[in-house]
Design a protein around this nucleic acid. Structure first.
Lengths: 337, 337
DNA sequence: GTTGGCACTCAACACACCCAAGTGCCAAGT
DNA sequence: ACTTGGCACTTGGGTGTGTTGAGTGCCAAC
């Protein structure tokens, strides 16, 4: 009863189950894969695999399906990431290069990923943390209403309307803008709050009152960044695979809708040496997502922002991982320009 | 066999079916509603209603369920919009007033609507057509890369990065900005392209070459507006009511994901005197949405932007319509400020 | 460590049956 | 001209009973 063959059996079970959706038995295994041994031997191997918690039988005397632990072993030790076809690579490249806008790039990316994997795609906007202040603009919309705009060096734009406690003149606002901009122009967003504090203390007293409100808004905009936004696509793919999920897809849709949940999910994943991370079923922290797997990776500078897909635990991991990795690479390349 | 009573029967059938999810029979009707006649009479009425295509029997000798046409009659002639409870009104008001940002307002609105109706909420961003140019900003990101920002009087901000054919100096860009801004400041977005054309022709030749690229971008930003964005919430509510939809919810999720489809859907609805519009099941133009109903209304100035909910045809129309209308009103009020 | 054989299990399917809810229709009543 | 009670008929759904087929576990033999 050799160890290598047992792993081979596990791989066969995973692969068969992934594409047949049905528990797989010893007989079917020897038929479909050239294992060189009889079904009885396979049964012995399967008994051991079950002992180890890698596979399970839904009902007594039924075929086996992989457990989460089984998938984990499969992903970590058995599977090889399947390279994409040349045609697919070409398609990715041309599609992404046709975009003109950051928003457009992200939108195309998430749709592409959903289509490529036939699953729900999630893409987080690039982080702005490393970027610096390119420009600041204050626009007087009404006597006590100011539009604060922060433009970062990476091209992201944040804006918010803020109400000031007292009315403000256009000229005062211009001066305020001038002073603040000259103080923080080029400053990294991550240290912006500190610099703003200094700048604020050096303002002439009459401006300082208003400055406080506006500066706080700027701080928020910097901290907020754009990386708190995520894009979704392919939720319809969830419906196709009803039944793949133990419960209903309701909790999953709920989780997807909560940006906070998805952001935590993406950021909490541990990205190993291969750079690609997989959370399988019950490994997911949020209860509603047991029964679902997440395949994600970072992209862009420092791989700081994340992107990935979500699907049933019964998914084609090698292909999915390949697609996620490829899309992340192409996206990184596009963003470098 | 009086006409009024037949309508009363239809109303009873709709109401019972909406909250029991099961075909309703003549006996159950007389039990639950004080109709003052016997079940046999109701059966006669039901036969007529079926003749008219207002109700149908899923199987021979089973209770009846309303048809799309039946719901239509119910909505148009029978039902009365149920006013919200005082508590609900209060909740809407406080929730929406707590928002600070336009984005935040819209986000809260769509979630509120989803929660209130237990259905999928769709909110279109306010139109910018009537707004005017508040400010224009060009930021040199790289020698041939310019960030073009257009700030409208209603507080919306559009930006896009554009590549110029040749390198441009910071000073040139500043001059360009100065000239264009002075030409179009305060101009309505709807006539911006024309004004930009004039401004462009009056530029000194060296600037005109670059100006062309940038001006085209500005035109796009103005046309694009923000009204092409929609927000969704409550998709998980679809999963709760699986079985309410004849087919799977897949096509519905697909439609929801396609902003273009949703925008057309919202804009194509006919808004009658009551200002609230209902599309029932097969009345929906897009095939994937037969089996779903949409309740929508306009909000804001001219009721130009739309908002609404999507759910199973078997929905509580009076309550849903009340919620949609109330949210639209409160949102309009908030936006006026 | 592998294999064929064999008894055993169990979900899924098919079939038969009954029951409750409901209909359609008719003749009698108002 | 409606309304009503009565009655025969339909049918989906629930329940009980075989039957079948894929699959297991175990054992003795190789």
């Amino acid at each position: 009863m050799s160890e290598p063959r047992r792993l081979e059996v596990l791989r066969a079970i995973v692969e068969d189950y992934v594409h047949s959706r049905e528990p797989v038995g010893s007989k079917a295994l020897v038929d479909r894969h050239r294992l060189g041994v009889s079904s009885a031997t396979i049964r012995n191997d399967m008994a051991v695999l079950e002992e180890e918690g890698l596979i399970a039988a839904p009902h007594t005397s039924s075929g086996r399906i992989p457990t989460d632990k089984g998938y984990r072993l499969f992903v970590d030790r058995i599977s090889e990431v399947k390279p994409l076809s040349a045609a697919e690579k070409k398609a990715i490249q041309t599609l992404l290069e046709g975009a003109d806008d950051l928003d457009d790039v992200m939108d195309r990316t998430v749709r592409l990923l959903a289509q490529l994997t036939n699953q729900v795609a999630v893409v987080q906007f690039p982080r702005v943390g490393g970027a610096s202040v390119r420009h600041i603009e204050f626009v007087l919309l009404a006597p006590q209403q100011i539009l604060v705009v922060l433009i970062a060096s990476n091209g992201t734009v944040q804006q918010r309307i803020v109400r000031t406690p007292a009315a403000l003149q256009e000229t005062e606002l211009a001066e305020l803008r001038q002073r603040i901009l000259s103080a923080v122009s080029g400053v990294k967003l991550s240290v912006l709050p500190a610099e703003l504090g200094v700048a604020l203390s050096q303002l002439p007293p009459p401006l300082r009152a208003h400055g406080g409100t506006i500066v706080r808004t700027l701080e928020q905009l910097a901290g907020l960044g754009r990386d708190d936004r995520i894009l979704l696509a392919g939720t319809a793919n969830l419906a196709r695979s009803t039944g793949d999920f133990p419960l209903s897809i309701g909790p999953i849709l709920e989780a997807l809708e909560e940006q906070v949940v998805m952001l935590r999910l993406l950021s909490e994943m541990e990205y190993d040496a291969r750079g690609i991370s997989v959370r399988i079923g019950s490994e997911n922290p949020y209860g509603g997502l047991s029964g679902a797997s997440v395949v994600a990776t970072g992209y862009g500078p420092d791989a700081g922002a994340k992107l990935g897909v979500l699907g049933p635990t019964r998914m084609d991991y090698p292909t999915t991982m390949a697609a996620v990795r490829a899309v992340a690479r192409y996206l990184s390349r596009i963003l470098e320009e």
